[in-house]
């Protein structure tokens, strides 16, 4: 039986990783809302974020702030390249969404293998943004990086809300999500909006990767677990709902952490998938249907 301290500690850890899942889940939602596509390569953006940042810091000796400033746009460009090179041509050729989704899965594997060839299979990490720590609250240790994750996560949520609700492009993206034909009829270039969605989604993934790498590590194959967990978070939150994905990520992260403490590390994924199964059976539209950060899907 785990002690109270162990449970509290796992909750703290769960919130941190859960927020990362939530950001990955929001990435899924952004692309799905704009295009109806589930981008299974979403996890790879997390991996690329951590990987590029680590390489820029260790091999070019860049300070972390500069490395992040280069990494996020670089990964956003990778997202745009994926849209231009894979998704758009397939859409133009009348491919079904299933085929496109499968192609994104293939892209995930391809990018992973290219990363393996380019950077090797050695796990990499870099130090916390703020050296020192952890902060002790009683007997619970809270790493400084968690505060960065919480702070940046909160800032991103606010920034996304402002983007989707207060900017012309954000509103246009939401319009595309609800009725793409009507959006086109009003002059909105839907294809360009998809490009924006892929860039935004990849950028979010990169930020998640940069934030989480100091607490764990990055390697060519970390994208898949983050992608799967982000996908589960998005489903728990009611797919397409950014706020729901964030809440779903937090719930998933906390449950995974509790499962590790209570049952052992081997039960982490059992917990995640059990949660998914229960949610799918009891709440087919997600736990947080009705709670929206600004975007909801009505693909047409």
């Amino acid at each position: 039986m785990p002690s109270t301290i162990e449970i509290l500690q796992s909750l703290v850890n769960g919130v941190g990783v859960g927020l990362i899942y939530g950001l990955v889940g929001i990435g899924f939602c952004v692309i799905y809302n704009a295009s109806g596509i589930v981008n299974f390569a979403q996890g790879v953006f997390v991996m690329l974020g951590g990987m590029f940042c680590q390489v820029l810091m260790s091999q070019l000796g860049l300070p972390i702030i500069l490395a992040i400033a280069i990494t996020v746009p670089l990964v956003a460009l990778a997202g745009m390249a994926m849209e231009l090179a894979i998704v758009r041509p397939m859409l133009h050729r009348g491919a079904t969404l299933f085929a496109i989704i499968l192609a994104t899965l293939a892209a995930q594997i391809m990018i992973e293998r290219i990363t393996l060839l380019g950077f090797g299979d050695r796990p990499r990490t870099f130090p916390d943004f703020t050296p020192g720590g952890p902060l002790r609250v009683g007997e619970v240790a809270v790493g400084y990086q968690l505060f960065w994750i919480l702070g940046c996560g909160a800032l991103l949520v606010v920034a996304l809300w402002l983007f989707f609700n207060r900017t012309r492009t954000g509103r246009a993206l939401r319009a595309c999500s609800q009725n793409r034909e009507a959006a086109q009829l009003l002059g909105i270039p839907v294809a360009r909006m998809m490009l924006v969605a892929f860039a935004l989604s990849a950028g979010l993934g990169a930020i998640a990767g940069v934030l989480v790498t100091p607490t764990q590590y990055t390697a060519y194959n970390v994208g898949t677990p983050f992608g799967v967990s982000g996908f589960i978070a998005a489903i728990i939150g009611g797919f397409g709902r950014a706020g729901g994905a964030l809440a779903g990520g937090l719930l998933l992260g906390v449950l995974q952490a509790l499962a590790i403490v209570a049952l052992g590390a081997g039960f982490k994924n059992v917990a995640a998938l059990s949660v998914l199964l229960v949610v799918l059976m009891l709440f087919p539209n997600g736990l947080f249907a009705g709670f929206s950060l600004g975007a909801r899907v009505h693909s047409k």
């Binding site: 012309r168 509103r171 246009a172 939401r174 319009a175 609800q178 009725n179 034909e181 009507a182 959006a183 009829l185 009003l186 002059g187 909105i188 929206s292 909801r296 009505h298």
Partner: peptide
């Protein structure tokens, strides 16, 4: 073809996209 979950104001604002 309205954007059903957006407000009247937002629908009109999207109409003025150009």
């Amino acid at each position: 073809g309205l954007f059903a979950q957006m407000s009247v104001r937002e629908n009109l604002m999207v109409g003025a996209f150009l």
